Simulated assay, not measured.
Amino acid sequence: MTCCFLLSSAECYVKITLMHDGRPMKKTKTSSQSNEISPCFNESFTFDVPVHQLEKVYFTLSVLHHDKEGKRHLVGRSYIGLNFDPEAREQYEEMVQSPRKQITCWHRLQS
Rank of each mutant, 00 (worst) to 15 (best):
T2H: 09
C3V: 08
C3H: 05
F5D: 05
F5R: 05
L6V: 13
S9F: 05
C12K: 06
Y13M: 07
K15A: 11
I16T: 07
L18P: 02
L18T: 01
M19Q: 04
H20S: 08
D21F: 07
G22S: 06
R23G: 00
P24M: 00
M25S: 08
M25H: 04
K27S: 11
K29F: 07
K29M: 09
S31F: 09
S32R: 02
S32W: 04
Q33E: 06
S34H: 12
N35A: 11
E36L: 06
I37Y: 12
F41I: 03
F41H: 02
N42L: 04
N42P: 02
N42K: 10
E43T: 00
S44R: 11
T46G: 12
T46P: 02
F47R: 08
F47A: 03
F47P: 02
F47N: 05
D48V: 15
D48S: 13
V49L: 03
V49S: 02
V51R: 04
H52V: 10
Q53D: 13
Q53N: 09
L54S: 02
L54Q: 08
E55S: 15
E55N: 14
K56R: 11
K56G: 02
S62L: 07
S62W: 00
L64C: 12
H66N: 13
H66S: 14
D67C: 08
K68F: 13
E69P: 15
G70A: 10
K71L: 13
K71C: 14
K71G: 09
K71I: 05
R72S: 12
H73Y: 12
G76M: 00
G76E: 04
R77V: 08
R77Y: 03
I80W: 00
G81S: 01
L82P: 05
N83I: 00
F84N: 12
F84I: 03
F84A: 08
F84W: 09
F84R: 06
D85A: 13
D85N: 15
E87S: 13
A88R: 01
E90V: 05
E90N: 11
E90I: 06
Q91V: 15
Y92E: 07
Y92A: 07
E93M: 14
V96P: 10
V96S: 10
V96C: 10
S98F: 15
P99N: 14
R100L: 15
Q102W: 10
Q102A: 15
I103A: 08
I103Y: 08
T104P: 03
W106Q: 14
W106T: 15
R108N: 14
S111F: 14
S111V: 09
